[in-house]
């Protein structure tokens, strides 16, 4: 992690995301706090519906109504960005925070050439001339590993394969050197054979451009190889966050433990992480106390009534009563 005197690149504090519905308010993300340091890769894992994408979208200010940030703050390099006016936030997007989506086949506008989409983005955020932007676009395409970029730049998205399109998407996300990239399952839609290449590329490029990455994924293998730290989400909350070695080899939270137990070998750990008994509760049915209690093998009485908060344990932070040092346990059958 970076020197601790300056503020972290990204600081999310007590983020809460709500969806007002006819039958009351759904809390999809609750009390989520984490930092990302400059140049750091934070992996974000958790079952489908845990709130990973919503967290990412709210950082870049693209939460779709009726979803809204109902509480908390987001700081980018010390500057609060969650309450910026639309135009100010638009300038943050692309220029300070870039985003890579899941499906490269649908991320690019089919009617514009790859080059014109790059040039448009570059010129929106800089006062580069058309020809300078064009040159930069060609350089970027070369950098993301697209052969003969001078020719390819005038081609349209349908003339590129899925993997090549994701390279273009990465070039687009990085084209004005943002300090943070949010990559929401950037390889899930790709052929297994090229997933590793794309992750390597993302990792290398972000390092070269000095960008930190919030990498949302289901692939623990990717996390193990790429991330510096890992955040584990469950039912809209953080279950555990800590250095990758800690979390993967020495998982403390029973949910993380279950997740890691579900990967037989990291080498071919491409299957989804849903092998823990039971399913994550729907937002309308989150139980009292710890949200994981119906599925937790170590559940005890306190878990049924009180909700645990993130507390530091070694170099990680865990939200689980098992690691609460201030109070006596009231009982256990773990």
């Amino acid at each position: 992690m970076a020197a601790s005197t300056q503020p972290p690149l990204l600081e999310v504090k007590n983020l809460r995301i709500e969806f007002p519905t006819r039958r009351g308010t759904l809390v999809a993300v609750d009390d989520v706090s984490f930092d990302i340091a400059e140049g750091e890769v934070l992996g974000v894992v958790g079952e489908s519906g845990a709130g990973k994408s919503l967290t990412g979208a709210s950082i870049i200010g693209l939460l779709e109504p009726p979803g809204r940030i109902a509480g908390g703050e987001v700081y980018l390099a010390g500057r609060r960005i969650d309450n910026l006016p639309y135009e100010k936030m638009r300038q943050v997007r692309g220029r300070e925070i870039g985003m890579v989506f899941q499906d490269p086949l649908t991320s690019l506008n089919p009617l514009y050439s790859v080059g014109s989409q790059l040039v448009e983005t570059i010129r929106t955020h800089t006062d580069m001339s058309e020809s300078a932007a064009q040159q930069r676009a060609i350089d970027l395409l070369g950098e993301v590993g697209i052969p003969s970029p001078k020719i390819r730049i005038n081609q349209y998205p349908h003339q590129f394969s899925g993997g090549m399109r994701q390279r273009v998407v990465i070039a687009l996300a990085l084209c004005v050197n943002p300090k943070l990239i949010i990559a929401d399952e950037p390889t899930t839609a790709l052929d297994v054979s090229i997933q590793a290449q794309i992750i390597d590329l993302l990792k290398r490029l972000c390092r070269d451009h000095g960008a930190a990455v919030m990498l949302i994924t289901h692939d623990m293998g990717v996390i193990a190889e790429t991330a510096n730290r890992v955040a584990v989400m469950y039912a809209g909350r953080l279950a555990e966050i800590g250095p990758v070695g800690q979390v993967i080899k020495n998982a403390k939270h029973p949910y993380t433990h279950g997740l890691m137990g579900s990967i037989p070998k990291l080498a071919h750990a491409t299957e989804r992480l849903v092998q823990i008994e039971g399913t994550m509760p729907r937002l309308t049915e989150i139980p009292n106390g710890c949200a994981f209690n119906p599925r937790c093998p170590k559940v005890f009485a306190r878990c049924m009534v009180e909700r645990p908060d993130l507390t530091p344990v070694d170099s990680s932070q865990i939200s689980c009563w098992l690691y609460d040092k201030t109070m006596e346990r009231t009982g256990s059958h773990g």
Binding site: I60, R90, V92, R93, G94, T106, L108, N109, P110, T124
Partner: peptide, 17 residues
């Protein structure tokens, strides 16, 4: 609602564009 419009927003393009 398409992804490429979302991605265009995420790149900070102006609303007019």
């Amino acid at each position: 609602r398409t992804d490429y419009i979302k991605f265009a927003r995420a790149r900070g393009l102006r609303d007019r564009a």
